[in-house]
């Protein structure tokens, strides 16, 4: 247990990427999937591959990109990995890339925080907290609009 914690801490310290602004959107009971959005920064001088992720709150996690066809039809395309360029960053944001949580173990409640371990090409994991925002949030700082006049 202590050894695992130590190794995890070590992995975080030596990990090549920095993750910030991770957020998901609140889900309803029975809802099967949720997207997670974030900024992944790579301060190193080598490109880094993000190859997947895991979370205690999802039975399965995938990397997806939303694409829009010429006919306006939206489709989600599975990504085997996402390359973070050297000294660069990739923003996973609505309308583009996202981490897809599947088989949610329980609804994501607005205001709560869930765990996510992002897996890199060399097998290391970067742990990030994911804040659950209101269902229609488009960024990590978005406030829920008060609804009714």
């Amino acid at each position: 247990m202590i050894r695992t914690a130590f190794l995890l801490a070590l992995a975080t310290i030596v990990s090549a990427v920095e993750i910030s602004g991770a957020f998901a959107r609140a889900t309803a009971p029975g809802q099967g999937a949720a997207g997670v959005f974030m900024t992944v920064k790579n301060p190193s001088d080598q490109p880094v591959e993000v190859t997947g992720a895991t979370s205690s709150r999802a039975g399965r996690v995938e990397l997806h990109r939303t694409e829009t066809g010429a006919d306006g039809v939206k489709r989600m395309v599975h990504q085997p990995s996402i390359t973070i360029p050297a000294k660069g960053q990739v923003v996973l944001a609505p309308g583009g890339l996202h981490v897809m949580l599947l088989d949610l173990t329980a609804p994501l409640t607005e205001g709560s925080t869930i765990d996510l371990d992002v897996t890199l090409g060399d097998g290391t994991k970067v742990t990030t907290p994911v804040i659950v925002k209101w269902a229609g949030a488009t960024d990590a700082t978005a406030e829920k609009p008060s609804c009714c006049p």
Partner: peptide, 20 residues
């Protein structure tokens, strides 16, 4: 559809902000 994690919440969130 509810299994849609990206596009649908964005559009429904937009509808909510327009309604407000």
């Amino acid at each position: 559809y509810t299994f849609c994690p990206d596009v649908c919440p964005t559009e429904l969130g937009y509808v909510a902000r327009v309604l407000r």
